[in-house]
Design a protein around this nucleic acid. Structure first.
Length: 425
RNA sequence: GGAGAGUUGUCCGAGUGGUUGAAGGAGCACGCCUGGAAAGUGUGUAUAUCUCUAAAGGGUAUCGAGGGUUCGAAUCCCUCACUCUCCGCCA
């Protein structure tokens, strides 16, 4: 969430930044400040009354021990009167505090000044392209046909077992998944990220911490009997590892990586966008997360972008890097770079990674802080990115590398996969 | 799922109604001591919030979470979460 101090110090600037994100209820800023004023007023009254009660109570104790019962009874009556005053204040305070919090979490993160102005994906700024598009042979087909031809993925079987969007990987398809995961994790740990294997379900507090709740409630699978959410990304459990923790400055940066399946309801998706591996309810992803000193977060964002870029380059896929415009970026992000790879047979760009700086938006919710050199506690900044999401990478690898006698694999993967190409059974 | 025990500050650990934000110890920081270090010794060592904001000082809240009893709760009662032990079930 945004910090109240930012709103209070510069409401006008906050509104301007919110407009870049196409956030409509700009008046919310003033409403929140008004609520905070009220909260302060009530808190003052509450504390003052409570202080009187506390003092009187101590005196009662002293009087009792001296045996001055009558005086004590007198004081008790005073306290009783004070408590009468207190309870309405207390009730109002609870209401105001809840309202304040409810409204505050409705504000999205402020976009950084680097965010391009714009509303739709067409307004995203291409900051870099790399690799080259392959020349496909005449009989080239999309990955869903290749998956069938080489018996790598069975979409129909997934429909039978679960439903659409839950493919079954088999044979070399399953092994290639395993190889990709292993390779991605090794690439990340080599760069200093600590590997985690977190739970695949989280409680509401964790989902709230990274911002999935309340904003994306309908996008997560929920298990009502135990009130648990299936994770939509490893970002949720991994970032929450440090929830409510005060770090030492020398602990920073904290670099974490994790492979997990990801579960997304993708309500509202349909049509050719969901064909084959393009959009799934369950998919595999390796994620990187960093918790960093606030002054360094933008440098580290660039570093993470390079890290992911290196991984894509090693796979030999044509790619481009986009800086997302205000209208297309996520609720919690301050600056996001998306990576897209070119899926040759579909002639489409597919998003395979999204690297973002959240500044203190997530850490304010999670209370992830550090003590600086002056002994003051302040919020760290959080960042994360995919490195990488598997299905679309797989789609591109299959489509771009298909030949008449098999599908070639990039050198980086060959040792993990155990052979240079996928051939028909 | 059933029965029992437990959850206190950075850590260990005392505390069953009254100056207890919390004994004692360890750790850590700074100082003294020392040629230097160890030992010894002194001081300090939570978070949030309000007043105020430049700081100091003060108030309030927090002893797993939430509620209740009471003039007063870490201490009593209720609900929930988690941990441990035994039983049951089970990869």
């Amino acid at each position: 969430m945004l910090q109240l101090s930012v709103l209070r110090h510069n409401p006008q600037q906050v509104k301007e930044r919110l407009a870049v994100k196409h956030f409509k209820e700009v008046d919310l800023v003033d409403a929140i400040i008004a609520l905070d004023d009220e909260r302060k007023k009530l808190t003052f009254g509450f504390d003052e009354t409570k202080a009187k009660i506390n003092t009187a109570s101590k005196e009662i104790g002293a009087l009792m021990s001296k045996g001055q019962k009558e005086e004590a009874e007198e004081r008790k009556k005073e306290v009783e009167a004070l408590k009468q005053q207190l309870s309405p204040i207390q009730e109002q305070l609870a209401v105001v505090e809840k309202k304040l919090n409810d409204e505050l979490i409705r504000l999205p993160n402020l976009p950084s000044v680097k965010v391009p102005v714009g509303k739709t994906p067409e307004d995203n700024e291409v900051v870099k392209t790399g690799g080259s598009k392959p020349q496909l042979y005449a009989g080239a087909v999309p990955h869903w046909d290749l998956a069938k031809k080489y018996d790598l993925i069975d979409f129909e079987l997934g429909n039978k077992l679960t439903g659409s969007g839950f493919p079954v990987y088999k044979n070399k398809g399953a092994k290639l998944q395993r190889a990709l995961i292993q390779y991605f994790l090794d690439y990340n740990t080599l760069a200093g990220y600590t590997e985690y294997m977190p739970p695949l379900m989280v409680n509401a507090a964790s989902a709230y911490g990274t911002g999935q709740l309340p904003d994306k409630e309908g996008q997560m699978y929920f298990v009502p009997v135990d009130e648990l959410y299936l994770i939509p990304t490893a970002e949720v459990p991994v970032t929450n590892i440090y929830r409510d923790v005060i770090l030492k400055e020398m602990d920073l940066p904290i670099k974490m990586t994790a492979y997990t399946p990801c579960f997304r309801r993708e309500a509202g998706s349909y049509g050719k966008d969901v064909r084959g591996l393009n959009r799934l309810h369950q998919f595999d992803k390796v994620e990187v997360v960093q918790l960093v000193h606030p002054e360094k977060s933008y440098d580290i964002l660039e570093e993470m972008v390079q890290h992911v870029e290196g991984l894509i380059q090693s796979l030999g896929l044509p790619y481009r890097i986009l800086r997302l415009c205000g209208g297309d970026m996520g609720f919690t992000s301050a600056l996001t770079y998306d990576f897209e790879v070119y899926s040759a047979a579909q002639d489409k760009w597919l998003e395979v990674s999204s690297v973002s700086n959240f500044e203190s938006y997530q850490t304010a919710r999670m209370k992830i802080r550090f003590k600086d050199a002056n002994g003051k506690t302040q919020l760290v900044h959080s960042l994360n990115g995919s490195s990488l999401a598997l299905p679309r990478i797989l789609a591109c690898l299959l489509e771009n590398n298909q030949t008449e006698d098999g599908i070639g694999l990039p050198v980086a993967l060959q040792a993990y996969f155990g052979s240079e190409k996928i051939t028909a059974l």
